[in-house]
Amino acid sequence: MSKSHTQNVSETQPKSNAIEWLALIDEQFRKQDYHQARNLILKALLIFPNYAVLLDRLLMVDPHWSKPIVSRGIHLAIPTESDFSFLQQCYDNEAFMQQLLPMGRKKQSAEAILHALKKSEFSVAHYRSMHRIIKKAVCSNLEQPLAQFNLKPIGLASLVDIQIAHRRAELLIGIPDQAERQRATAVVMMLIMDLSFNQIGLHKLTSLVLANNPHSQRSTVAIGFTQEGLRRQHLCDPQTRQWMDCYENGIVADDFYHNPVIARISRRLIGRNITVKPV
């Protein structure tokens, strides 16, 4: 009997306790075989349905992280290698990146971007982050009876610093063009909150906003986040070397499900009330 066949047989045998299942599952994580890891997690949960560590592992490979998100002409697309040029443009735009990533995260090289694109399907398991390209449908020929639509990339939306055990993530949305930003930001916010709370089952979203961007802070609070604090002199501007304050904002699941503003805006922008809790 071959070694590979022996391994396959051992993987299908019943395990006597949850620790043995975890050892087998974590081996698949080390191999980056996340499809197999998820299959094993689901089998283990049939025996140990409330085992917290198994539920944490399942969250990391939840297929909802990689499912398409579309509404009213706005697509939150999983990045592919065809998006490399747009991503590079975004990373080269220092003013835009300073607003999108105010925490001083290092600039990404072309090699790092390409490597991340190849791991985009299970980015949460691999990087503890989820990245989407914001694209809008643009009509390519208005004269045709059945208009053809192309998808134009206009920005980035991400969940970063995903804390699996605490069901928490930091939300980032960035659209370089101001005209596009005004039309699309609220739609993207609704779609990300719907994904986070209703489909993934996160408990909290956070958002850090530079204090020198009062418009963004007002918009964040108006959409449903609570200002939880002000981090004084928390960041150092890489260009001026001046210290900057930033606001710390958050929204927890209970507040999301009882927020009339989000209910009203989501009905208007994406045609449904996202604050209705899934059964």
Rank of each mutant, 00 (worst) to 15 (best):
M190K: 01
A179T: 10
N213T: 13
P278S: 03
Q7W: 11
P214S: 10
S16D: 15
T12A: 11
L114Y: 06
I164C: 06
Q89C: 12
A263Q: 06
D56M: 05
V53F: 04
W243E: 11
Q88G: 01
Q217F: 12
R232V: 07
I113C: 01
D83F: 04
L205E: 02
L235M: 12
R268E: 11
N8Q: 12
V276P: 00
W65T: 06
N150G: 09
W21C: 11
L24K: 02
I25M: 08
S2K: 10
L142C: 10
Q239G: 02
D237I: 00
V53Q: 08
L146Q: 08
M130V: 13
L58P: 01
A37K: 01
G104L: 08
D177I: 01
G73I: 05
L55N: 03
A222L: 04
R231Q: 14
A110K: 15
F256C: 00
R183T: 13
Q182K: 14
A263I: 09
M97L: 13
P63I: 04
P214K: 12
H35F: 14
A222W: 07
E121G: 00
F96T: 04
Q36A: 14
C246M: 12
N212W: 03
T240N: 10
L269R: 08
L101I: 05
C139H: 06
L151Q: 14
L58Q: 07
P102D: 06
E27T: 08
G250I: 06
K136M: 15
F48D: 10
W243G: 10
D255I: 03
W65D: 07
H203S: 13
D254T: 05
S2A: 09
L100K: 02
I192W: 04
T206L: 07
A77I: 12
H5Q: 14
I274K: 01
